Computed example of a mutant assay.
Amino acid sequence: MTVRLGLLAILDQAPGYGYQLRSEFDRRTGSTWPLNVGQVYSTLERLDRDGLVERDDPAEGAAPGDGSTPGEQHRLWRITAAGRAEVARWLGTAVDSPDATRDELPLKFALAATLPGVDVVTLVQTQRRASLAKLQRLTRGKRAGGDPGAPGEFAWQLVVDSMIFAAEAEVRWLDHVESRVRRASLAERQWAVEATPGAPSAGPTAARSDRGRGETVRGRS
């Protein structure tokens, strides 16, 4: 979710001042995506430029601001019809996760697997310990939460659940990487043995040769 769409969805409920929108964003996302006031106001300015919100400028001589920035005057923001349509489109459309990844973890292991002299299994074990520690921290944090029925707490637990599932998937993926690396290493060693001149082979050709010798012995007998 972008901050842009999050603020727009909040404004779809009621007009608000910048500082109020920041507080509402924090409450509705379980305090898992902290915003600074400057980010809120710059986002609102872009929404205004795009015709998705409009602002009521304070009257001349109005009392200063909403407490977010020294000297900032009250400026009420409200959503436009185009903004409401954008919120409806966003809520009614599935999130399109990218097919490619820029996540450091899989890219790190992909590169490490191609570098000579790198013990990928040791890297996996180091990362697994860190991932399991993160999973334990998230689980303890969720259990230590407050009233799960409170709106802010419920929102926070939804986000933490997602982080827990992602950490569990990360650990399973690391198990998969270690298994694949070990199998690949075993296959390479086996190939090296079979490629050695004079080394015995257990392949199909050897099996056929054994059957042929057996048939010859039986024929002579």
Results as ranks from 00 to 15, higher is better:
76 L>G: 03
192 A>S: 14
99 D>L: 13
210 D>P: 01
170 E>G: 01
167 A>P: 04
171 V>I: 15
52 L>G: 00
77 W>D: 02
123 L>K: 04
122 T>A: 12
91 L>Q: 15
208 R>Q: 06
17 Y>G: 12
93 T>D: 06
42 S>G: 11
127 Q>G: 06
152 G>T: 07
145 G>Y: 04
147 D>N: 15
146 G>P: 01
55 R>D: 04
200 P>G: 05
70 P>A: 08
182 R>H: 05
88 A>R: 08
191 W>H: 14
125 Q>T: 08
83 G>M: 03
125 Q>P: 02
44 L>Y: 02
187 A>E: 13
75 R>M: 10
108 K>P: 01
208 R>M: 10
74 H>W: 14
184 A>Y: 04
125 Q>K: 13
174 L>P: 04
106 P>N: 01
5 L>S: 04
91 L>R: 15
206 A>P: 01
118 V>K: 10
58 P>Y: 04
59 A>L: 11
136 Q>W: 10
109 F>I: 07
29 T>L: 09
28 R>T: 11
9 A>C: 08
124 V>G: 02
70 P>W: 05
175 D>R: 05
167 A>I: 06
110 A>G: 12
60 E>R: 12
136 Q>I: 00
156 W>S: 11
21 L>F: 01
15 P>K: 05
33 W>M: 13
75 R>I: 06
59 A>P: 07
91 L>A: 13
174 L>I: 11
57 D>A: 14
63 A>I: 10
54 E>I: 00
165 F>M: 14
39 Q>L: 05
193 V>N: 13
169 A>Y: 13
133 A>E: 05
51 G>A: 02
221 S>E: 11
34 P>D: 05
111 L>T: 12
9 A>D: 09
50 D>L: 03
140 R>A: 15
151 P>F: 05
83 G>P: 02
38 G>R: 11
70 P>E: 07
27 R>V: 03
175 D>M: 04
20 Q>I: 00
169 A>I: 09
135 L>F: 08
132 L>Y: 06
176 H>G: 14
171 V>N: 09
38 G>N: 09
142 K>I: 11
117 G>S: 02
97 S>N: 14
22 R>W: 03
111 L>F: 15
123 L>S: 08
59 A>N: 11
177 V>C: 06
153 E>T: 13
30 G>S: 07
130 A>P: 02
84 R>C: 00
87 V>L: 00
45 E>A: 01
92 G>D: 11
196 T>P: 03
146 G>K: 07
8 L>A: 02
19 Y>A: 15
173 W>N: 09
220 R>G: 00
124 V>W: 03
118 V>S: 09
44 L>T: 02
194 E>C: 07
22 R>G: 03
165 F>A: 14
161 D>I: 11
13 Q>R: 15
100 A>L: 09
142 K>C: 00
155 A>P: 06
199 A>K: 04
128 R>L: 08
99 D>M: 09
117 G>E: 06
122 T>I: 03
6 G>D: 11
46 R>A: 07
70 P>D: 06
172 R>T: 10
95 V>D: 13
99 D>Q: 07
85 A>E: 14
123 L>V: 03
3 V>N: 09
196 T>H: 12
176 H>C: 12
175 D>G: 04
13 Q>T: 13
98 P>Y: 07
196 T>A: 12
